[in-house]
Amino acid sequence: MNKGGIRLYYKNQEELSYALRDYIDDYFEGNIEDEALEEKIFKVVECNKVKFYKDNEIAKKPKQILGKTRLNVLEQILMKKREE
């Protein structure tokens, strides 16, 4: 992961999904604070909506790569950010 900022654009669903997975794993390992994780996840998903969603729900590939636990974290972050 680059130190200065975050990469916002990914070329395909797989690359995007693994990046999101890595962010959430960093959080689980205690390497990133709640606010920083929320900001990263929201920005990356917003910039890659076309790849992340299919028919208004999370696409199959990201769901498979993220798994249930990470997906729950991600969905909670996205719901929280939409309410802000």
Results as ranks from 00 to 15, higher is better:
L71Q: 05
K68I: 08
N72I: 12
E15A: 13
N72R: 13
V73N: 02
N31S: 04
R82P: 00
D22H: 09
T69Q: 13
G67A: 07
N12D: 15
Y53C: 10
E35M: 09
D55T: 10
A59P: 08
R70S: 08
R7E: 13
E75R: 14
V73G: 02
L37K: 11
L37G: 05
N72P: 00
D34H: 10
E33Q: 12
Q76M: 10
D34C: 02
L16A: 02
P62I: 08
G5Y: 01
M1Y: 06
Q76G: 03
N56I: 07
F42L: 04
R82N: 11
D55V: 10
K40E: 06
L78W: 06
F52Q: 03
Y27M: 02
L74R: 05
L66R: 06
E39C: 01
E83I: 11
I41F: 04
V50F: 07
K68Q: 09
K80N: 15
S17Y: 01
N56F: 14
I6Y: 01
L8D: 02
I6N: 04
K54Y: 14
E84G: 12
E35S: 13
Y10V: 00
R7W: 00
D22R: 11
K43L: 15
D25R: 11
T69H: 11
Q76C: 04
I58P: 09
L37F: 09
Q76W: 03
I6D: 05
N48E: 04
L78V: 07
Y53H: 08
I6P: 01
L37Y: 08
E57S: 14
R82C: 08
R21Y: 15
A36H: 05
E38S: 14
Y53A: 09
I58L: 11
S17T: 00
D22Y: 07
A36P: 00
E83G: 06
E38Y: 13
G30N: 02
K43Q: 14
D26W: 07
N31K: 14
E15V: 01
D34S: 07
E83W: 01
F42M: 02
N12F: 07
K54W: 08
E14P: 00
I41V: 15
L20H: 08
T69G: 01
P62W: 11
Q64W: 06
C47G: 07
E39Y: 14
N31W: 01
E15D: 11
Q13A: 11
L16R: 01
K80G: 03
N48A: 05
G4V: 08
Y10L: 02
